[in-house]
Design a binder for these strands. Structure first.
Lengths: 135, 135
DNA sequence: TTGTACTGTAATAATTTTTATTACAGATAC
DNA sequence: GTATCTGTAATAAAAATTATTACAGTACAA
């Protein structure tokens, strides 16, 4: 997987600490040491899920869209999740082989179970909780 | 993450089904629909961990190095694991920012916890169990 | 109403990671 | 000795990720 989850968490932690004050993508990118356009893209995605508010124009920027106590890391994870945490499952095994024929189905089902365990665990931590670990 | 875990599981399932009979990397690659050299590389890695035996020369090939009931998917996962299941943590945030300064440490610790949950769950399934799901 | 400082988003390029390919030395059976 | 394997390295191709650039749209403020 990419580093998107970490970026999303970082962004949301900053916004929580900002306590309602708007932060610009440039400021956030400065903390992340990443590209403002990339950060805006992630912010745009978080906005789509309602975890972030944005205001355009001069003096604009971003703020949390929900209370930090009402955002779990499972929620955040879902915004960036693409495949399974155990890896890609896009092999195209040989259907003439009895194992090859069934492996994708068996792996998929198994991977889904693991993903659910991960999400269940992530749901135990809120943004407020995570954020409180910073001085 | 890459597709290595799936490949490793696929290989081991084939070897379990082969029931001691040696399989060549070419045969395995045929089932995986992947490259023999890549498969040998993964087999070589599994061998390093003792989960696979190999025999060189004509008529050679690979077999399981332990009983399928004694190999858990957590064991297999460890052979291919590089970073956390939640993604790479190689950002270099701004140390001048109070969040940036501490985020890597906090994320690392948190990611480790999740990885442990995953590994704990994977430990509940043995290769024998997984393999039995195939007709 | 014009300039300035933002977001939103697309297009493209650079980088990194993953996978494939090729090659060949070494081992073993026949 | 020759054919058939493994072991491994070097290299190339492909895919995914991240960075960069650009610019239209929006809002504020002088």
């Amino acid at each position: 997987m990419s580093g998107r989850f970490q970026i999303a968490i970082h962004i949301l932690t900053l916004l929580d600490k900002a306590d309602g004050k708007l932060l610009s993508s440039q400021f956030i990118a400065g903390s992340l040491n990443a590209n403002p356009a990339l950060v805006r893209k992630e912010l745009s995605n978080l906005n789509k899920f309602g975890f972030v508010n944005s205001r355009e124009g001069q003096g604009g920027g971003y703020s949390l869209g929900k209370r930090a106590a009402d955002i779990t890391l499972a929620d955040v994870f879902r915004t960036v999740q693409t495949g399974s945490v155990l890896g890609s499952t896009k092999n195209q095994p040989n259907p003439a082989c009895s194992v090859g024929k069934q492996i994708n189905q068996n792996i998929s089902k198994f991977y889904d179970e693991i993903d659910n365990v991960v999400i269940g665990t992530l749901a135990n931590t809120t943004l407020a909780n995570f954020s409180s670990r910073f001085n």
